[in-house]
Design a binder for these strands. Structure first.
Lengths: 388, 388
DNA sequence: GAACACACGTGAAACGTTTCAGAAGGTGAC
DNA sequence: GTCACCTTCTGAAACGTTTCACGTGTGTTC
């Protein structure tokens, strides 16, 4: 590809004029305009301002332009000025790909989706994605999102890193024996995760402090005077699930309240399963029947509410119900649901900070971070907030 | 950076052996391994297989390797074989950045988010993103997602295209006078949109046929025997909103049913506004009071349901209610909501196809596409589906 | 006035790929 | 035996940037 300088020379006009004629950024006498266009046509030139053009206009070498623009080496004030002006006049923007190739750093962070099943509670993740992109950009990076199958997710990760598409990864939706984490650790690829795996693996992650969250909501229920408080958790075995259950015990212990084993039910993360668990709780003898039910997800809380409603039990008055996640739906159900909100912007910023530490090979002060969720009190636990 | 060949020469071993020693992909005698590691250390070499290494191992030039691997020029069967074997043995993966620079094509598609307000109905968009990524990858592209402010979104788009970060864009969440569309059209940047703007602008888009959707649900209500059918739409002026309202009129006209002006209400897209509109409808004299209310979004339908519930009017029995979008919540509310599902995978695939046509400068057979949504019947309109 | 240090710039190489233009060698026709 | 023409391969340039190693010119010091 010809340079702007060559076009200008052929048309016998200054470089700047050639640029203006081609870009339309300023008016140029018709005659000159014509000859510039003809020259460009002849050379097969399409407008692409590069560092060479800036150098030619400023009358310096490309090295000097690079130094002046990046402040990467001392340049006299006068030349710097000329370079900056030339760059501005030509509306020069460095081509990232040149930089990428030379530095062997893409400044791109990979983020993989797997298909979100309909109805699964993922409305949170798109907000996470937004804030992640935001945070990443504040470091001059961008996010490359890709789709991967749920069966062999590592293929996509391997391909992206081996072809130098990305510098590192951010993971969400981790699980206990996450093959992606195992692969990335082994291949020594920089990454940071939103979510834990298991405590044998040492890798950078940020997670919601589910234990603290359920503790918060349980304390809230205790304050309201409840003494028979039930919990519907997930089946044992998941790190975050077990942590949430632990928060329940911690709060009851701290308040020296009795815990009855019948009050702790386990169910899959679905509204139907939670409804069934609620039915069992309500079937307990009245002395044992709980007056409050804490759930480890909004989805489950809604199942419980549906069950109670269908039995004529008034949520918020007769039985308090709480969730976890603060999904958009939590505000809309009837009555609105008390729940725990994950500070998604904060989480995203922190996980990105962890990744940046990995990328720059700076040992982070803390590689594992837990963020406490925020208790959002609504009418499902607090009758005073019930609509008139 | 030194090449694998140089390391091998220094260590006085075959290239393949050097690779195996460094990568651990195959066992290598301890003595050779040591000398390879020493050689790599001395040259400051870290394992990065490039086309040069493949060429050296296959004993051909890098040009030949490129031709053989890409089938971009005739190569004799024997050499092709040797090249392929060498590439496989070294686990060679071309560095995209080299290719990018040379071709001046990034094979990256930009996709911008703006912050999704809490509770706004965006759970659909993350599924769109997934399917978009999937579709884009089938063309060998990837998606670069970025965050942009709602005030001046064009800055982000301009920056990405001017720095050669991306080849084109996919837009979602378009609006009537979308500045992004205007900019991209003017700057002749390839893009395709999910959503329309206004009919003066000619650009490639895919959109849900909202008119047909509301027509479908209205026909469904008519079939069920309703004759007094109301509609709660958005304030006049939005392309997609007006189209949805039109579908209502079309269905009633086709069935020769009367339309009463009091039955068509306008409200903002919120559950509260929709509840208020429902209250007005229910306050009509009984001869005029509708027995079915179609809404142009699930969010509004839920507001209507909440209102009816609170007044003791049984949704599905006394008054039918329908929504639009099939948000996850639609299945969970009580009773489950009849609504219209947007075929998100199909939409994503089609918008990507449009963009690819733009990128390859192939004139697409059709640049504007409407996709009919699918009617999902649940208990909110069909009492037979009511839970026991 | 020679020797040196320093400030400022520059030419050229490098990153990894594709691709152009042409070299080498073989084959067939006359 | 010469020529032309394939087929198969290669050297080198190109993409746009950063950066290394080295000029050049000026001023300072003795």
């Amino acid at each position: 590809m010809a340079t702007l300088k060559q076009v200008a020379a052929l048309a016998d006009v200054p470089i700047l004029t050639a640029y203006q004629a081609l870009s339309g950024s300023a008016a140029v006498p018709q005659a000159q305009r014509q000859s510039v266009l003809a020259a460009a046509e002849q050379l097969g030139y399409t407008l692409h301002v590069t560092i060479k053009d800036v150098a030619a206009l400023a009358g310096v070498s490309i090295a000097t332009v690079s130094y002046a623009l990046n402040n990467s080496a001392p340049v006299s004030a006068a030349t710097r000025q000329r370079v900056l002006e030339a760059a501005a006049a030509l509306n020069y923007r460095p081509n990232v790909n040149g930089r990428t190739l030379q530095a062997n750093k893409t400044r791109l962070v990979g983020y993989g989706w797997h298909d979100v099943k309909r109805g699964s509670s993922a409305s949170f993740l798109d907000r996470f994605t937004y804030w992640m992109a935001q945070a990443v950009e504040s470091y001059g990076y961008h996010v490359l999102t890709f789709a991967h199958s749920e069966e062999s997710p590592t293929d996509a990760y391997r391909e992206l890193i081996q072809t130098n598409r990305v510098d590192g990864f951010i993971l969400a939706h981790t699980n206990r024996n996450d093959v992606r984490i195992r692969y990335l650790m082994e291949a020594r690829v920089p990454f940071a995760a939103f979510g834990r795996a298991n405590d044998r693996w040492d890798f950078p992650y940020v997670d919601v402090d589910g234990r603290r969250g359920v503790e918060l909501v349980t304390e809230h229920l205790i304050e309201l005077g409840h003494t028979r408080i039930a919990l519907i958790g997930w089946p044992e075995g998941s790190l975050s699930g077990d942590a949430r259950v632990q928060g329940y015990f911690d709060a009851l212990d701290a308040a020296a309240l009795p815990v009855h084993s019948a009050w702790v039910r386990r169910a899959e993360n679905s509204s139907a399963a939670a409804a069934a668990a609620a039915a069992e709780l309500m079937a307990l003898p009245s002395a044992l029947r709980p007056t409050a039910i804490a759930c480890v997800s909004d989805l489950m809380a809604i199942g419980v509410m549906n069950y109670l409603n269908s039995r004529g039990i008034r949520v918020g008055y007769d039985v308090a119900v709480s969730g976890f996640d603060d999904e958009p739906i939590a505000e809309l159900v009837h009555p609105p649901l008390t729940t725990l909100r994950q500070p998604v912007d904060d989480l995203a910023a922190q996980v990105v900070a962890l990744l940046m530490a990995e990328l720059e090979r700076i040992p982070a002060p803390q590689r594992q971070i837990l963020v406490a969720p925020q208790l959002i009190v609504r009418a499902s636990t607090d009758p005073k907030r019930q609509l008139p």
